[in-house]
């Protein structure tokens, strides 16, 4: 079985829930366990949040009334691309941005390391992605952008593979 989806949205924090809920809906028909679902949602949320706040520096999103707070802050233009593929019970997720990129990927992936401690970022983003998915790789070029590839085996592989 093969199924793909692609979604591109503005790099604002309001879209973090859109991203993880889209992936959840995309895999829902494979009957994942609650744990698998929670793991995938967390990993996607981490990757997309990274793109928005580190890639584009958009710390604040829009409030319920549509303004940005504090009023001095501005939202940078930018898009995040989310690509998912289901292939024989494997879920592949790609989160791509065209933001500032990562200088030192190894350092960025260290648990508790963050470039924005003032924002109360815990530095656990990549550690959670690594722990909750089976496979994680990051490609990045400073000034060009970043792509995060993640893979997770869904335990429904054999069931999907069966002919009706």
């Amino acid at each position: 079985m093969k199924n793909e989806m692609e979604l591109q949205f503005d790099a604002i924090s309001n879209n973090e829930s859109l991203a993880r809920l889209s992936v959840a809906a995309f895999i829902a028909h494979t009957n994942p366990t609650l744990e698998e679902m929670a793991d995938i949602k967390t990993a996607v949320s981490e990757a997309v949040t990274n793109s928005i706040i580190h890639g584009y520096g958009n710390i604040q999103g829009y409030t319920r009334h549509g303004e940005v707070r504090p009023s001095i802050s501005e939202i940078q233009e930018g898009k995040v691309r989310l690509y998912c593929k289901l292939l024989d019970g494997d879920l592949l997720v790609e989160v791509e941005d065209w933001g500032k990129g990562i200088e030192n990927i190894e350092k960025a992936m260290e648990p508790l390391y963050t470039t924005r401690p003032e924002l109360e970022r815990s530095g656990m983003g990549f550690a959670f992605m690594e722990a909750f998915m089976d496979d994680l790789s990051v490609e990045s070029t400073p000034g060009i952008g970043t792509v995060v590839h993640m893979k997770k085996k869904l335990n429904c592989g054999a069931w999907i593979g069966k002919e009706d």
Binding site: A38, K41, T49, R121, S122, M124, F128
Partner: peptide
């Protein structure tokens, strides 16, 4: 649902 922002 919670991600690392909750830890923050």
């Amino acid at each position: 649902f919670m991600d690392s922002s909750g830890i923050g």
